[in-house]
């Protein structure tokens, strides 16, 4: 599951540009467990939040290679060693005929594998999110919502509230829902 935090602070912004500027300030102030909930992907948010590049492309590359090896091994084993058959006088190890399967297997392994890894990794390697349903943010509608989780190492409720207000955020609100969530 995506980790949830029961405690934290929310602040609203109304323009993507403001959200970007705020994200850069939160990053520079040294906060780690923070996130921006936005109605649509905001270009440049990853850089502004100081997020590193994902390692997922490497997973895709390795899976693609595995797909290639799998398809080649399977076809050569079946068509050359296990049950050789003569198709139109072509050689048993007819490499051009193996290419489409190899290509498809590569795409299949890489695409599906990456999707699965992305979902699993996204659940584990994520900033603790605000408690779901308990908090109405407006982030699915017209707000760009900054969330700082209380799990952050430098958390201090009063300090966090002062800081978020200093960013020019609207509707700053401390959240503490106790044990009511699945965190």
């Amino acid at each position: 599951m995506v980790p949830n935090s029961t405690k934290g602070i929310l602040g609203h912004f109304y323009e993507p540009a403001d959200a970007l500027a705020a994200a850069a300030k939160v990053r520079d102030a040294g906060w780690k467990h923070f996130d921006f909930l936005t109605p649509f992907p905001v270009h440049g948010m990853e850089e502004a939040m100081g997020q590193k590049r994902s390692w997922l492309p490497w997973v895709t590359a390795v899976l693609a290679l595995c797909g290639i090896v799998f398809a080649q091994a399977l076809q050569n084993y079946v068509m050359v060693f296990d049950w050789p058959m003569n198709f139109g006088g072509k050689p048993f190890a007819a490499w051009p005929a193996f290419i489409p399967i190899t290509f498809e297997a590569m795409v299949f392994w890489a695409a599906l594998g990456s999707a699965v890894v992305a979902i699993v990794a996204g659940r584990m390697d994520s900033v603790p999110q605000p408690p779901p349903m308990a908090v109405k943010t407006g982030a699915t509608f017209d707000r760009f919502v900054l969330w700082i989780s209380a799990t952050d190492p430098k958390w201090d409720a009063a300090e966090a509230e002062r800081f978020v207000r200093s960013l020019g955020a609207d509707g700053v609100r401390l959240v503490d829902v106790g044990g009511r969530t699945n965190a």
Binding site: Y14, E15, A17, D18, A21, G168
Partner: peptide
């Protein structure tokens, strides 16, 4: 509050 973000 924000139009100043739009740059020249």
């Amino acid at each position: 509050m924000t139009r100043e973000h739009y740059r020249a």
